[in-house]
Amino acid sequence: MEKKRIKAKLLACVLICILPTTTSFAMDKEDFFRYLINSSYPETNTNEEKESASTKNNDDEKNDNNDNNDDYIKVHIGEENIPTLNSDDNSSKSKEKNESETSLLAEYKDNVRVTSATPRMLIYHTHSCETYSNSPSGNYHSNDPENSVIKIGNLLTTQLTNKGWGVVHNTTIHDNPSYNNSYSNSLKTVKSMLSAYNSVDIAIDLHRDASANVTKETNKNYTTTINGEKVAQICFVVGMKNQNVDEVMKIATDLTNLANEKYPGIAKPVVKKSYGRYNQYVAKNGILIEVGSNAVSIEEASASTKYIADILDSYFK
């Protein structure tokens, strides 16, 4: 890995020296950065590679392998930073963690919690190991459900159920051991859940955003205050390669507008990803929600769930 770093530095110096002036101005910093990543870390994929792979292969599962890497590259560069499930050497902490996990997942059978005989909503997590600021180990990726998007999915399930919705919450881990296969793994889960519960027509992939720098200032960029309470902001993401992209975009836009009408400042603008699909074509209503980021605490993300539930309830009922 050290040789790769040296190679990248040498390559950067050579390119800066030999590239014509017109070329250097034509290539912005992001493009140059992606070039260096590809040269030094062939195990990673940039947007251009993903789009090419997607164009060549129409198989759903193979295409969706490549939907998830852009934000990942910004935080993780090189094999040494690929998220892994963390082991805890302290036995007392391990025991406390296991008890906490058992408490959270007690309502689940085979990673599934169902709150109605005829549920309409499915909540799942393509990046199940995404954690918040309370759990920074593993570069904010670990099997720590009490401080991860799984906990947020659990709370959102409860909030929606309290409003009369039937919900299926699936806690299957899709991003470990292979992060790059996250979307193909979650695609299998979505198809399985839709087959088992044919009353479901709303599929919500619940994530959190990623920030390379976790600071107090970053936290401010992902939180807002509602009714005197500090909560995580939310964001809807749309994969522009979906064949039903118009419908996906309409739902995301409508939900964003409704969210800010009811709770000003809670929703960031819709994020459009030109190279992705994120399994949003599978269900009638495919939604990807990001709740806060790794710079946000689990408490701040949890506080958002009652507002998210109210927004979804108001829109879909």
Score class of each variant (00 low, 15 high):
residue 240 M to D: 13
residue 276 G to T: 15
residue 276 G to S: 15
residue 192 S to N: 14
residue 137 S to R: 10
residue 125 H to P: 10
residue 28 D to G: 05
residue 170 N to S: 13
residue 41 Y to H: 08
residue 108 Y to W: 04
residue 108 Y to A: 06
residue 162 N to G: 15
residue 134 N to T: 00
residue 84 T to P: 02
residue 157 T to Y: 01
residue 132 Y to S: 00
residue 26 A to G: 11
residue 135 S to Y: 00
residue 93 K to D: 11
residue 224 T to C: 11
residue 74 K to Q: 09
residue 87 S to W: 05
residue 281 Y to G: 14
residue 194 L to N: 11
residue 317 K to Y: 09
residue 265 G to C: 02
residue 118 T to A: 13
residue 53 A to G: 09
residue 89 D to W: 11
residue 153 G to F: 05
residue 75 V to R: 02
residue 86 N to K: 05
residue 80 E to C: 01
residue 39 S to T: 02
residue 155 L to G: 04
residue 34 R to P: 01
residue 70 D to L: 08
residue 294 N to P: 06
residue 122 L to V: 09
residue 181 N to Y: 08
residue 317 K to C: 12
residue 150 I to N: 00
residue 101 E to D: 14
residue 270 V to D: 00
residue 104 L to T: 02
residue 38 N to I: 04
residue 47 N to S: 12
residue 1 M to S: 12
residue 221 N to D: 10
residue 152 I to V: 12
residue 83 P to I: 00
residue 228 G to C: 04
residue 250 K to T: 13
residue 172 T to F: 05
residue 267 A to C: 15
residue 293 S to P: 09
residue 244 N to S: 12
residue 254 D to E: 14
residue 13 C to S: 08
residue 115 T to D: 03
residue 63 N to P: 03
residue 240 M to F: 05
residue 210 A to W: 03
residue 123 I to D: 07
residue 206 L to V: 03
residue 100 S to G: 08
residue 240 M to C: 12
residue 88 D to N: 12
residue 242 N to I: 02
residue 198 N to G: 02
residue 103 S to H: 13
residue 250 K to L: 13
residue 296 V to W: 03
residue 85 L to Q: 06
residue 269 P to T: 00
residue 72 Y to F: 12
residue 73 I to A: 10
residue 36 L to G: 04
residue 76 H to R: 14
residue 261 E to C: 04
residue 161 T to K: 07
residue 317 K to A: 14
residue 135 S to W: 00
residue 135 S to N: 08
residue 199 S to E: 10
residue 28 D to S: 03
residue 164 G to A: 13
residue 159 Q to E: 15
residue 201 D to G: 07
residue 76 H to G: 02
residue 261 E to M: 07
residue 243 Q to W: 09
residue 35 Y to V: 06
residue 234 I to A: 11
residue 134 N to H: 00
residue 242 N to E: 13
residue 216 K to Q: 14
residue 94 S to C: 10
residue 310 D to A: 10
residue 136 P to L: 00
residue 16 I to H: 11
residue 153 G to S: 09
residue 141 H to N: 14
residue 231 V to F: 06
residue 251 I to N: 14
